[in-house]
């Protein structure tokens, strides 16, 4: 089973462990990931906030490169990149926008590759395999945190339901975990304000952590590097906003599954977290 792969910038830098765990889990499930050649940054919130054409052109180049390589399906683990690529694909269904972007890129673009997130990848190509290969059930009580970019806007992503999504919960239950019914599954963590408004990130992420902690979560499960870094790397700032500081680890869905498949903490990059992971 071969599938296109767009890691995105975070996965090569501040979220290396996400990359490591995606690659390790894919390997364990016999999924071959083919990285898009010479991929560029999707532009993230910055491009989107500053210039519309730029915000469409950057993701369009990525997808054009994938098409050139003949990749009909591309998995995008970073929720922010996944969102930008999907939204761009949708926007470029408009003929004027598409021809303008093709003109800028000087590359053919069809919008034909299917963009999927990591949950879809696991659901579609891994579910049976995972069940068969569980060696160490992930017997933990966790809170699945989806954030904004994985589920909204529903009209374009058409992925999980917007309120109280379930796909990640289902996955965790499949590998032997219990998931909490909690209230902050899709409330924003502060997103791109990590550097520019750390105070707001601390407050918003603090609300999320507090609810999970109050309900007895052993860990938060995420599928977005931005959420992960806000909740993990900014823990110092967050804890200053909380009455009781929290040491709940924040791990990627692929790390949780990797653990169930018997992969080591090392392989899954669990040592790279700021908040120590002992699961």
């Amino acid at each position: 089973m071969k599938i296109g792969f767009y890691p995105g910038c975070s996965l090569t830098g501040s979220s290396r462990e996400y990359n490591e765990s995606v690659v390790a889990v894919a390997k364990a499930l016999d999924i071959e990931l083919i990285e898009i050649n010479d991929w560029n940054c999707c532009g993230a919130t910055a491009a989107h906030a500053m210039n519309e054409e730029l915000s469409l052109s950057l993701p369009a180049r990525i997808m054009a490169m994938a098409e050139k390589q003949g990749l009909t399906e591309v998995v995008v683990p970073c929720a922010a990149c996944y969102n930008r690529l999907k939204v761009t694909q949708h926007e470029l269904e408009d003929d004027t926008k598409r021809s303008r972007v093709i003109d800028i890129l000087k590359m053919p673009y069809q919008g034909s590759s299917r963009i999927i997130n990591v949950l879809q990848l696991l659901e579609m190509y891994g579910a049976e395999n995972i069940k068969a290969k569980i060696t160490r059930p992930f017997a933990h009580k966790v809170a699945c945190y989806y954030g904004c970019l994985l589920v909204r806007p529903h009209s374009i992503l058409k992925f999980d339901r917007v309120e109280d999504p379930q796909s990640m919960d289902t996955m965790i239950k499949m590998v032997g975990g219990t998931t909490l019914d909690w209230a902050f599954k899709t409330e924003c963590c502060g997103a791109g304000f990590s550097v520019s408004r750390t105070d707001l990130v601390a407050k918003l992420s603090g609300n999320i952590l507090k609810d999970a902690a109050d309900r007895g979560a052993e860990a938060l499960i995420v599928a977005c590097p931005m959420c992960q870094s806000n909740l993990d790397m900014r823990r110092g700032a967050i804890n200053k906003t909380l009455e009781t500081p929290s040491d709940i680890p924040v791990i990627y869905i692929t790390q949780a599954i990797g653990l169930a498949l018997g992969l080591s903490a090392q392989e899954l990059g669990l040592k790279r977290h700021f908040v120590t992971v002992e699961l």
């Binding site: 309120e163 609810d211 109050d214």
Partner: peptide, 10 residues
């Protein structure tokens, strides 16, 4: 929105 916490509806 409405959500449940500690037996209360927020």
């Amino acid at each position: 929105r409405v959500y449940e916490k500690n037996g209360k509806l927020i």
